[in-house]
């Protein structure tokens, strides 16, 4: 552990523009999808004498859900492409930390950040620059959840669609055993993503507060800070 608290830090560019753009497109479209989705599943009670002719709010809610779904899907495709084009922190390999180094880092994260132990011999070099091993695993899990949402969502949408793209997913619903089952899966996975978000937001705040390296702002500006000693040559 550090002896004095004062260190020199270097600014490092971790999250490139496309990664940050994806993050926020994803975050906001997920938010829109979850809110409209919950409303669609259980619309609020409106007792009023208004005529249906002049209202369309439920139709609009569904439109927002479908429009956000397209944006969300495009965002995901875009991110998948960037996994092959971006820097090493965005590369697809990051999301499979099943190497010796990765698993070692996993142990570190679990000990330090999940179980909150203070091991004597801990090394600041273990603090990940990009995603730590556990986070990377969580994000690949999230990608699977998001893929399930895309498949079930477009599957349910397919029969209303006139375009070929959603129709490609028409097989999903019969495979799951009908609309009701597909809806249930879509709904449960939504809640899993909500739970992911709660943990994700907390851990970002945690790292920002406990490591003091600009974790939160890195998703806006793209920079993080690492100890000078970690940079090979000045």
């Amino acid at each position: 552990m550090e002896t004095t608290g004062i260190h020199t830090f270097k600014r490092i560019y971790v999250w490139e523009g496309p990664v940050r753009a994806f993050h926020w497109i994803n975050a906001f479209s997920l938010l829109a999808l979850a809110v409209t989705g919950v409303i669609i599943a259980n619309p609020p009670a409106i007792m009023s004498g208004a005529e249906a002719t002049n209202r369309y709010w439920f139709g609009i809610t569904r439109f927002v859900h479908f429009a956000a779904a397209y944006i969300f899907t495009l965002g995901m495709v875009y991110r998948l492409c960037w996994a092959f084009l971006g820097n090493k922190y965005a590369n697809w390999r990051v999301f499979f930390p099943y190497t010796k180094k990765g698993l070692h880092n996993l142990g570190h994260v679990i000990k330090h950040d999940i179980l909150l132990m203070n091991p004597k011999n801990s090394d600041f070099r273990e603090i990940a620059v990009g995603h730590n091993a556990l986070a990377a695993m969580a994000y690949s899990g999230l990608f699977i959840l998001m893929a399930i949402q895309i498949f079930t969502g477009f599957g349910l949408y397919a029969d209303n669609a006139t375009w070929w793209l959603p129709k490609l997913f028409a097989w999903v619903v019969p495979m799951l055993g009908g609309d009701a089952a597909a809806r249930l899966v879509h709904h449960i996975v939504m809640w899993l993503i909500v739970i992911f978000s709660v943990i994700h937001i907390y851990l970002v705040l945690y790292h920002d507060w406990l490591e003091g390296r600009g974790e939160v702002s890195s998703m806006f500006g793209g920079y993080k800070f690492i100890r000078k000693e970690r940079v090979k040559k000045d």
Partner: peptide, 15 residues
């Protein structure tokens, strides 16, 4: 049209 307008029956005996 009532569906799109968000006007729903809440229980079978309501207005």
């Amino acid at each position: 049209p009532y569906y799109d307008a968000g006007l729903f029956v809440e229980s079978f005996d309501d207005e």
